[in-house]
Design a protein around this nucleic acid. Sequence first.
DNA 1: TATGAATGAGGGTTCATTCAT
DNA 2: GATGAATGAACCCTCATTCAT
Lengths: 205, 205, 205, 205
Amino acid sequence: MDAKTDTVKKRRKQIFVAAVKVIADKGFHNATIKEIAYEADLGKGTIYQYIKKKEDLVLLIAEEGVSLLSEKIEEVSASLDSPEQKLQRIIDIQLSLIQKHSMLAKTMAVEVEHIKTEDRARIEKIYVENFLKVIKDSIEDVLPGGCFAEEDAMILADILIAMCFLWSHSDFIQRHAGDIETYKRILSHLFLYGLTRKEKENGCG
Amino acid sequence: MDAKTDTVKKRRKQIFVAAVKVIADKGFHNATIKEIAYEADLGKGTIYQYIKKKEDLVLLIAEEGVSLLSEKIEEVSASLDSPEQKLQRIIDIQLSLIQKHSMLAKTMAVEVEHIKTEDRARIEKIYVENFLKVIKDSIEDVLPGGCFAEEDAMILADILIAMCFLWSHSDFIQRHAGDIETYKRILSHLFLYGLTRKEKENGCG
Amino acid sequence: MDAKTDTVKKRRKQIFVAAVKVIADKGFHNATIKEIAYEADLGKGTIYQYIKKKEDLVLLIAEEGVSLLSEKIEEVSASLDSPEQKLQRIIDIQLSLIQKHSMLAKTMAVEVEHIKTEDRARIEKIYVENFLKVIKDSIEDVLPGGCFAEEDAMILADILIAMCFLWSHSDFIQRHAGDIETYKRILSHLFLYGLTRKEKENGCG
Amino acid sequence: MDAKTDTVKKRRKQIFVAAVKVIADKGFHNATIKEIAYEADLGKGTIYQYIKKKEDLVLLIAEEGVSLLSEKIEEVSASLDSPEQKLQRIIDIQLSLIQKHSMLAKTMAVEVEHIKTEDRARIEKIYVENFLKVIKDSIEDVLPGGCFAEEDAMILADILIAMCFLWSHSDFIQRHAGDIETYKRILSHLFLYGLTRKEKENGCG
DNA sequence: TATGAATGAGGGTTCATTCAT
DNA sequence: GATGAATGAACCCTCATTCAT
């Protein structure tokens, strides 16, 4: 609230932005504190006033990333759209955010795996409550009458999120799809109708 | 063919197995040659008679992994099953292999991203020709009359493969699904019918 | 100029002195960074803040050595002494400097050969312009009317310098001569009068 | 004498030749046993049946080198030439041998310095008795009536030898002199008449 | 005798982290 | 609070040497 806290916030932001940039480019292990400090326009020592260990950067990034991604999702879930429209919009928004913060997304997708179990708990809590659960709920709304049981919704949410993040770190996907709009379209169709929906038939095989 | 080549093959296998184990556990960068050597029951120096640089381990792993995964896939594509059955079997086989070689799969899923551009070409070639293309073809067979164009098949194959690998390195998925059979079922349904297929309706929205 | 530069200079000097000492003792390849660091009373890592590669130590030494040796030589060449007196003084001064900085001289004499071609150019330039050329000029002044052509002066300068350095790294010479004054006398006579100058021809100066 | 000894001799020669070649090219420390073995067309292990440690190669080389250089020198000293002619021929022969066995000479000139004190004794004995002393004697014969005392002969012999070897490892000398004949001429003149001998005093021989 | 696979000591180098200024 | 010089643990990799065949 006071001036000191503002500085702290500012510095954390500086470090966060720099870390995302450098880590996205080189990967966590090849990114050096020196370079992150340089990128943040700060001294190496200053970094260590805001984190305790290099690893903490991943936490910082994950936290920030999750909150960034959660941000708009809740709006969608609160809207009055049909379940299918909601799902579509979730895919849209998520991919747009991933596109916009591509380096952050890439860093998260790749490095979050390496967070130590102790530290994961906090991140996971935020992730599940503010993000995964919202998407799960939207998926749940769309399932009735389809081939999936209600308890499949969570896994389907996991899969949906994984597919979205895939865009950020797979060169292959990007090369094969060409642009993100194509990828959006494919994800939506795949999720809503599967590969085999045909005009004249239906049913779950 | 002769005895010498046999030793070479044996050693490479030893190193491969040890590397997969250690790298799956700690990640490439935290895995040390010392530990891999210990795991392989070899001296540190011996490792370097079979690879030139630590990085080569990823190549070794990727190559072996791709060939392992390709192994049974072609059988499927050559079978006389219906397209839908083929796709289902591909998912089955892939996930079973990934389950069986879970550490290899995890290593590949995570570390292949870091292979240097120069070395990627070779791996990619094998991957695309022996694996991706086969799956793409199977997907193509299932698309006609559905919502997807033929040229979407490649991306869909990418996505399918990524979702199979997801099983090996996502704790989340494993926890949420409980067992791999559940995951198999969900993946098959999702790809074949999407979330919304209902008894009485159809069409691509 | 400012405090920072002073530290850098101080550290480089520390490292230079330690490197000369250790390398003179063990030779470049048997000298370890660890020992040089210890001798310099610095941490191993600190060394690498002032050099990029171990090899750079030779450059550091060569540069410093050449400038040290050049120091007094130009004074001589500017003096009003007779050509013969100049040459004598050059030998005097050079041998005295080599004696004084015997470890530096030994290191230079032995290790300069191993400098990579790329880096040699810079050293050679300084060496030739500030040192070799001055001695060559002095030799040139003494040649007219003698057996040598003017264009031999450069080679003779090379030889003279090499013979001075010989003192620093040849145990044999040191044992056979006993003291440096004897060596000075012999070198001077040899260069000025050769082995066969007899009383009746000209006297021995 | 018997077949076994012949093999031993042959192998030692093979190793010697290969070692000289590789070491002259890369220096002792950068030369590897592997490469020397390859160059000798032998297995790495075989090398170790003829030497105990890598360092022994320098001994082998030094021994061989000294005996090679001594070879023709004694003939000269036994001849009936005038002292001046003898000295001239010594320079001629030495430089010719150094030219012919340039790699050996270079290796000796550079690496002999690093031989451990314990091992030096044997080499030095051969060197002094078969080589240095012969040259010293020839020099002694030429001194009477000149500026040098008899006891300077040894140092002068050291210097003469050093000057000859200079040719083999100084790029500078080779570049400045152009060819070895020039260098021969300069050495002879320098040694016999010094830099200042003038026409009117005695002529240049 | 000849071999080269196996080995591990040891060296150069990097970089996270500390701490005096 | 901000800094970056100093540090040394730790890693990759080389290579002399051994030894079973």
